[in-house]
Structures are given as structure tokens and as C-alpha cells.
């Protein structure tokens, strides 16, 4: 199959004085100024409740800013406009901790969900996917290495395979940006490394701006280019993954590090493939 351009290479993100206060008074984001260049691979760390998800979900409008603004490719996001929201989301793929596959549908159908915004609504309502879109979906499956599972029901896959389908669904959007919200938090250590490697590879091959929320510090250091640390919704660290120190992590977490903050099994190399 021919190499298809998977992205428009235009995934710049910029937060200006952005803030989110939830209706219950919890501060999810505070005075955030942040600029992410197209093609960057950014890992966001912080203890739970630090506002990692809030940040990602503000980029595709699943959360609405209560102050400031966020720009995607220079265009300010207005969550009040359903139309604009859909147009912006079309270019942003999202990967979830709990995979969020439609379990009773085949893997292929799940990946085609990534094409919904690209296909006329009447066609997708009837399931009459254009040939081109089916090829894009197949290509996305190939990139995560589970083409052989294309017609299997999503419920019959293992956790790692399901997350690959989740990645393929995001890829099928041919996005400029991928947001991965704790993509490995429900996976075992072996699969965790495989999925992280997939994400890095896709970022390198396709130049898709990738933001990954991670809980584990060793993963952040190993796979991140740039690390962003959040604490109570505030940006407390922004720097290269190569120079980040344990001291920095202690500051981000506001406590000493423990064994729970790393993936224990690191003796995993070359486990690429089906993951059965």
C-alpha cells in the first residue's frame, strides 16, 4: 500500500493565561502559558488531580476554559461553537486510558469511527464507508501492527491490543495532534513499553504533535522529548527529558518518590508485535 500523508503537519498549540475552575470550585488549571511546536513529543507528569487530563481535554474542547484562551494553529478555540469544535477535533486524535472502544463492533468499525468527521454523515450513518476511508483505516491498523485482527470484535482483544485499536482510531483521523490521556495506566509493564514505543514511532514517522499524560516517571524520562510538570493545575516544570532530575520530580510531586512512581519491570526489550 502506498505511503499516505497521515498529517497536515500543523499541530501547534498555545495556551494564553488559561485557567479552568470547575463548577464545584476545584481549580483544574491556573494561569497557564504554554507553547507547543508542531511535531513535538511532550510528556505531561504530575500526581493525580494535578490537572493533566484537564490540560489535554482543554485542547480538544472536552473541557472549557473559564479564563484565557487556547489556540490550535493560531485559531482560538471556542467551545460554544459546535461547528468550529468539530472542525478542530477532526484534526486532533485522542487516546484514552480505558481505550473507549465500542466493544460489540469489529476492530475495523472502531477505527473507522476516526473517519466520521471526514465522511458525509448520511454515508457513515448507513455504514457505506468510501473506499478511500476504508484504506486509510486499514493503513492505520497496519501502523500499529494488528491488521490480522481487523474483523475481530473489539471485546475479544487483550488490553494492549485494544489500546492499539485506540491509537489506530486516532491515526485514522489523519490528525495534526494526538492527545494520549494516561494511555498505559491500565496495561501491564510489557505492553506499556510496546504502546509507548508505538506512540514515539508514530510521532517520528508522521510528525504528529503528541501529548502524553503519564503517571510513571521512568516512562516520562525514557520516552519524552520535553517534560511538562503540573501541580495543582499550575505549570511547575518545563524542560528537556534528558536533563530532568529526581529533584525536579520531587518538586513536581511535592513529595519523595516511591516505587509506585515507576514501572517496575524494565527488562523489556524488543517486544514489538502482536502482543498475545
Amino acid at each position: 500500500m502506498s505511503e499516505r500523508p497521515m498529517t497536515s503537519r500543523s499541530g501547534a498549540i498555545r495556551f494564553h493565561d488559561a485557567g479552568i475552575v470547575y463548577p464545584n470550585g476545584v481549580v483544574g488549571m491556573k494561569d497557564l502559558d504554554l507553547e507547543i511546536q508542531p511535531g513535538e513529543f511532550v510528556v505531561i507528569v504530575g500526581s493525580s488531580g494535578a490537572g493533566k487530563s484537564t490540560l489535554l481535554r482543554a485542547i480538544n474542547g472536552l473541557n472549557t476554559l473559564t479564563s484565557g484562551r487556547v489556540e490550535i494553529n493560531g485559531e482560538a478555540l471556542n467551545t460554544g461553537s459546535t461547528r468550529q469544535l468539530r472542525r478542530v477535533r477532526k484534526n486532533i486524535g485522542m487516546i484514552f486510558q480505558d481505550f473507549r472502544l465500542v466493544k460489540r463492533l469489529s476492530v475495523m468499525s472502531n477505527v473507522l469511527i476516526g473517519r466520521l468527521a471526514h465522511v458525509p454523515a448520511w454515508r457513515s450513518m448507513l455504514g457505506l464507508w468510501p473506499r478511500e476511508d476504508r484504506e486509510i483505516a486499514a493503513d492505520a491498523l497496519k501502523r500499529v501492527g494488528i491488521t490480522d485482527k481487523a474483523w475481530v470484535k473489539a471485546s475479544q482483544l487483550s488490553g494492549g491490543q485494544q489500546q492499539r485499536v485506540g491509537i489506530a482510531r486516532a491515526l485514522a483521523q489523519q490528525p495534526a495532534i494526538i492527545l494520549a490521556d494516561e494511555p498505559v495506566a491500565s496495561l501491564d509493564p510489557v505492553t506499556t513499553h510496546q504502546i509507548m514505543r508505538d506512540l514515539v514511532r508514530i510521532n517520528r514517522e508522521l510528525g504528529i504533535t503528541t501529548l502524553v499524560n503519564l503517571h510513571f516517571l521512568d516512562l516520562a524520562r525514557e520516552y519524552g522529548d520535553r517534560i511538562i510538570g503540573l501541580r495543582f493545575g499550575e505549570l511547575v516544570y518545563d524542560g528537556s527529558a534528558r536533563t530532568v532530575t529526581d529533584e525536579d520530580f520531587r518538586d513536581i510531586y511535592g513529595r519523595d518518590l516511591t516505587a509506585d512512581d515507576v514501572v517496575e519491570d524494565e527488562a523489556v526489550e524488543g517486544g514489538e508485535g502482536g502482543g498475545e
Binding site: M1, M108, A138, L141, T147, A150, W151
Partner: peptide, 8 residues
């Protein structure tokens, strides 16, 4: 290559 869709 993607396998052929199994016929229902």
C-alpha cells in the same frame, strides 16, 4: 496486508 473481511 489486511485480511479479507470474513463473509457473514
Amino acid at each position: 496486508m489486511i485480511p479479507a473481511r470474513p463473509s457473514p
